[in-house]
Design a protein around this nucleic acid. Structure first.
Lengths: 380, 380
DNA sequence: CCATCTTCCTTCGAAATCGAAGATAAAGCG
DNA sequence: CGCTTTATCTTCGATTTCGAAGGAAGATGG
């Protein structure tokens, strides 16, 4: 649709713009330190970026014992990113500026079971709405990105073998969106986006496991500060066999998968078997907060099972932190059961400085993650 | 001792030298493609490196449809690396040139239970022997590195909480060696070195899990082509709880660790309980090859248990290959049992292009890994 | 054998980067 | 207030890198 214009950045300018946009630097001196370029080169490039209108100076910052830095910011007029996080029945959609700050975020009901074309067309028109209502005049759209509740092939931007997305298998989402928008397009698994978004809230934590506990169980992995995709399916923990007394078949054809016991969907099933009706994973959290013992017991058991799976992964990956997000993450017993299992069974060496915490990035973390990855695509 | 001289490389020269040394490029044109530098800059720097005597031209290579490249090699006179791989009762020691080619490799008996000072002094004198006997005159030693059968803190080069190294806990190995040699010193876990060494034999495979199945069970992880250390303890899989009927206590204080069932030491224990005496894990392999049914059954069971642990990690990391090394890796039933378990239980998406194979790097792979990491230290 | 293509490598002017020195601006302190 | 210290940013000549053009050396194919 709008704005085919490429971002007018050349050479080192892109790196500098990225560092400012991601918040890694906000003055010339900091840019020089972080980028490794000489201070003089930084000054030159920054001057150019200011002339092009991509960067703006916004007054002096706070001194740290010497002359005050002149703070830099990405210009709000540099461009917009349209990002979405598709869920089974709801989608969060938003517009971000190039530094990832949301202009507007909305949650809308949708239904991915209608198939990819209908859903993506719906998404595009929702973006149009947002741009019309909240997009400042003359600010071009620079990129479009969305999270998908299923595996995404990183090369082709196709959905591959999703378990709860009928009609989407092998659909080329990136290509379809690319036909709509002549812009960089990002398609990524939702847990991965969450992980990237969370990573921004955990500076200094270079190795993260970010759990998304909602209807399903997903996990995004940050290794050395960057998203780890493997061959595209990395981060799956939902089909690990767990230790239980009973035996339940999972939709994947194997017995006793974690997902069959600890996912939001599984908890809702179990509650319904006990005559307690719920419509969404958040309802389960509400029951726990209301002190309904059956719900609490189920959630605690789910946490224990998840924690036992995490023990293996913590010993192996030795991360700096485990971050729990998703709609179930606000359930206290879930986190404490995970903590208990991990700290009890993992090697002391691996848990020595391990933090296990709930999400810091807030409800829009996945959208911020999309913005972060999209910025890379825009500046490449 | 000898050779305090720093390698006389400045700026881009180091990158180019590294690319030639690691075999990533062997002509000026290839260097330009791989390094991203302009062909003209490459020519300039290569000329300098040849003038300094670090690189040598060695005749024309084979044409690929045009003018033949002038092949480049790191000069054998550029320097030597002294590397070792310490085991519980044996050590492999060798001298490499800067491109990682072994001049000489020896295996000697030793005993790490004598404590760090005695063992490291022994190692230093073994290096002196090798240098005297096989070190070309005038070629300076550029770095010293060793593998350790236990966890190593990457920052300090200390051994931390090793399970089978009495007297070594918290010993500053890197510092102690650094006092002997005024040179870059590398201290790293043995499975990690194996992984780095194997990675050189798997070009195009950027994500690897390298299993070391010997007396213990170790695992080195290569993510995105680089060794993943986490906080220093990454790659541990030996203290994962496995599914068994019986219940055995592990030395770590937890029940049913993988190590207690599937390590070489555990297999030897089990065989001795059946009245079959073995002295080393390799003896177990020999029994399997001789068709001793008890040994075969035990090894197959070990493979199944290891495989079941790997299923979790394969789904999570989604690697390109699992490489099995260590003295047990030559036992056919081990590999096939691992394969069976992984392919049976993992997600199809994760096993689609997954290769499970035995070591390609040969018996000196760990030494080559040490050389590879040491080269980075020397060229930094 | 000769023209043409491909690949490899070098030459040389233009552009980017560096680094040392200095200018600017604030904090800390007597 | 003036002096020193610290940090930020700019100026300018030296160095490095780039990239387009061309030369060198072999493959290919009539």
């Amino acid at each position: 649709m709008s704005g085919k214009e490429r971002l007018p950045v050349r050479g080192a300018q892109g790196d500098l713009l990225r560092l400012v946009a991601t918040g890694h630097a906000e003055s010339r001196a900091q840019l020089a330190r972080v980028s490794g370029l000489a201070a003089s080169s930084v000054s030159l490039r920054v001057e150019e970026l200011i002339d092009t209108g991509l960067l703006v100076e916004e007054g002096p910052g706070t001194s740290s014992g010497g002359r005050r830095p002149r703070k830099l910011r990405v210009s709000p007029a540099a461009g917009l990113l349209a990002v979405a996080d598709l869920g089974a029945h709801h989608a969060r959609l938003g517009l971000l500026d190039l530094s990832g700050v949301p202009l507007v975020v909305e949650e809308r009901a949708c239904d991915i079971a209608l198939g990819p074309e209908a859903t993506l067309d719906w998404m595009a028109s929702a973006f149009d709405d947002l741009l019309l209502a909240h997009g400042p005049a003359g600010v071009p759209l620079r990129g479009v990105g969305t999270g998908i509740p299923g595996p995404v092939d990183p090369g082709s931007g196709r959905v591959v073998s999703p378990s709860r997305m009928p009609g989407w298998n092998n659909f080329p989402v990136a290509e379809y969106l690319g036909a709509h928008y002549d812009l960089p397009v990002l398609v990524e698994n939702d847990a991965n986006l969450l992980a990237v978004g969370e990573a921004r809230s955990w500076p200094g934590f270079d190795n993260l496991m970010v759990l998304k506990a909602g209807s399903g169980i997903g996990c995004g992995v940050i290794v050395d500060g960057r998203l780890h995709r493997g061959r595209g399916a990395a981060g799956d923990i939902s089909h690990v066999r767990v230790r239980t007394d009973s035996s339940t078949m999972c939709s994947c054809g194997h017995p006793d998968c974690l997902e069959a016991y600890a996912s939001g969907a599984a908890l809702m099933d179990a509650l319904s078997g006990l005559g307690i009706a719920t419509r969404r994973p958040a309802d389960v959290v509400a029951l726990v907060e209301d002190g309904v013992p059956e719900a609490t017991a189920l959630v605690r058991n789910a946490g224990r099972l998840i924690g036992e799976v995490l023990t293996v992964l913590v010993n192996f990956l030795n991360p700096d932190a485990i971050v729990v997000g998703g709609s179930l993450s606000t359930a206290e017993p879930l986190i404490s059961a995970i903590r208990a299992a991990v700290y009890e069974r993992c090697l002391p060496l691996a848990t020595r400085d391990l933090e296990i915490a709930v999400t810091r990035g807030g409800p829009d973390a996945a959208l911020l993650g999309a913005g972060s990855l999209l910025l890379d695509a825009v500046l490449s």
